[in-house]
Write a protein that binds this DNA or RNA. Structure first.
Lengths: 198, 198
DNA sequence: CCCTCATGTCACCTGTCGGTTACTTTCACG
DNA sequence: CGTGAAAGTAACCGACAGGTGACATGAGGG
């Protein structure tokens, strides 16, 4: 029977997401996605044209990077605007497995999903800088971009390590206690760097 | 003719290193290493037992993580000890492609090489903390471990991105200018965080 | 001189991957 | 009714991966 193409298309996309979250990006292949969906892989080619196009649909359905504009909404100082943004990134990476897996994937290869993630990330980054510079007085000696890049990259790296490798620079990012130390350090750095005043 | 097993063993290890540096970890397989060496892959099994054991030899021949003890040798303050260590890590990652590829590999899978890297890294990290705590007065409010972990992870992440993805948090780690900004920021953070005194 | 063993080559097996072709089933519409 | 297009299935293909067995060839020691 013809079970309806639209439903199957959506179920395929969902299967890909599920597979990515559960088994990581290495498990996302034509055969695996089709099997996970309980359907033949030829449908992937018929409906999407190929796996990349299917991943494009995954990208469309998902928010791959936190919207920093909302986070900095009520911030009244450079300090808290940056802290909130960085903590939002940290939390998103820690709590949203799909984002985490996409970030991990980006280190390995390029595809519509990882490119979408990169594009969203860069856009949010630009927006944050723009917003912060227009709203607050940024000391000329302070390289906000380098600051945010360095801390965000650190949080990204620490949150995307596979769970097997317990210790990472002496910390275990999977441990809530250690993760809190990292968040605290992130806040400390931004607070101290952006200066006590302003 | 028997060209000598010892020589062939070494040439196989060198071929693996060359392949890893040139084409990345995904290219390091039994077939590829044998082909790069111009020899049959069966020798890998005969001489080493398998690819993992060959990678073990690669690990033995290489320094996979900078020795932080040497870097902090002449440091007379907590500030410079940490800065020097972090900059040593940054430079090593940036200039030693084998270390960089091994670090990238660690994010994807586990093998003797990546495990060796992780082990060396953790050992150096422990040593640094031990050394720093014994040699300097570390303020009780300062979480040195989280600080170093966060910054080192950031540098690691930024230096291990594939060269294609130009922008990363608005910066291009392949650009010398941008990289200098990151190094400068690293130094600034450690300096400010460890406090002006001591 | 011949036997043995290490070195090395070649061919082959098995499994998995992405991708395609050919066939069957189902439904909608004239 | 029946015909034709869409939905779905199954079998297949070539490329490439890791891994193994059988065979040639060489040097050294009895």
């Amino acid at each position: 029977m013809a079970r309806g193409a639209d439903g199957t298309k959506e179920r395929l996309v969902e299967a890909a997401e599920r597979l990515l979250v559960r088994d990581g990006h290495r498990a996302v292949g034509v055969n695996a996605v089709a099997a996970e969906c309980g359907v033949d892989k030829v449908l992937i080619y018929r409906y999407f044209g190929g796996l990349p196009q299917l991943l494009e649909r995954v990208r469309e359905r998902q928010q791959l990077w936190p919207a920093l504009g909302e986070e900095t909404e009520g911030a009244r100082s450079l300090d808290v605007a940056l802290s909130r943004s960085l903590l939002a990134i940290a939390r998103e990476l820690r709590e949203n497995p799909l984002v985490r897996e996409a970030a991990l994937w980006e280190g390995a290869e390029s595809n519509p999903l990882t490119e979408g993630l990169a594009a969203q990330r860069e856009r949010e980054m630009d927006e944050l800088l723009e917003l912060v510079r227009s709203r607050f007085r940024v000391p000329t000696y302070l390289d906000v971009q380098a600051l945010v890049a360095l801390l965000a990259a650190g949080l990204m790296h620490l949150s995307t390590r596979p769970s097997e490798s317990a210790k990472l620079f002496g910390l275990d990012p999977n441990s809530d206690a250690d993760w809190q130390r990292l968040e605290k350090m992130t806040a400390s750095i931004t607070r101290v760097l952006t200066g006590p005043a302003d």
